[in-house]
Amino acid sequence: MYKNQLQELAQRSCFNLPSYSCIREGPDHAPYFKAIVNFNGETFESPSFCSTLRQAEHAAAEVALNALALRGPSKALAARVLDETGVYKNLLQETAHRAGLKLPVYTTVRSGPGHVPIFSCTVELAGMSFMGQPARTKKQAQKNAAMAAWSALRKGELH
């Protein structure tokens, strides 16, 4: 998923496509991998070794996207690519599935005049509710709620 988003960011920014290299360690019967992605002249490394090359490459791409989303002129573009692809909704669903939890439930409320509606959305996951920023479309309101939930999960605000 992250590799695709990094590639899309490169295409939208007219950069060269990302290139990956890997470090392989361990015995032949149980190798583990660390990946490095070269993106627009910068290198980003997966934070730890992974059991598959694919996981390591996705981890390196995630590091790159997160770093790019926090700085420079590509900040807005990187954030928009992550948002447009619906990555946060996918991440919440995948996390719930892996943890054996019920899938996230989105509750959207419409307000405002009919010609200029405002949608507010709350997502429930593991007995917790997260509210996103209001938006002009139901789809965007759901993405905003998913982004709020994912941000809280990443910051450890659940414990």
Rank of each mutant, 00 (worst) to 15 (best):
R71T: 15
E157F: 10
C14H: 13
N38F: 02
L153N: 05
M131T: 13
S120D: 06
A69N: 10
A60S: 11
G156P: 10
P47A: 04
K75S: 13
K34Y: 03
E25L: 08
P117T: 01
L101E: 14
S51E: 11
E25P: 03
G127L: 02
H115S: 11
E25T: 12
E157T: 07
L101W: 15
I118Q: 14
G127P: 02
K143Q: 15
F130Q: 00
L92T: 01
E124T: 09
S74G: 00
Y88N: 00
R136F: 00
L70Q: 15
T85D: 09
L103R: 09
L70A: 15
A67P: 07
T107R: 13
C14G: 04
Q7R: 05
A56K: 14
M128S: 06
N38T: 10
P117E: 04
L17R: 08
R154E: 09
E25R: 13
A135M: 06
F44L: 09
M147Y: 09
P27E: 12
L70H: 12
T95A: 13
V87D: 02
H159Q: 14
L17W: 03
G41W: 01
V63M: 13
V63F: 07
L17D: 10
A76G: 03
D83R: 05
S74E: 12
V116I: 07
L68V: 04
R154N: 10
S46P: 13
A61I: 08
Y32M: 10
T122G: 02
E157Y: 12
G132S: 05
H58E: 15
A10L: 01
H58V: 04
Y88W: 04
P47F: 05
A10F: 00
E45C: 12
L6T: 00
P117L: 02
L65D: 02
E124N: 10
S13P: 00
V105C: 06
E124V: 02
L77R: 06
P31L: 05
N66C: 10
K75E: 14
L101I: 02
G41D: 02
N90P: 00
K138W: 07
E57F: 03
G41M: 01
A148N: 12
V37C: 09
V37M: 08
M128E: 08
H29A: 06
G41C: 01
A60E: 11
L82R: 02
C14W: 06
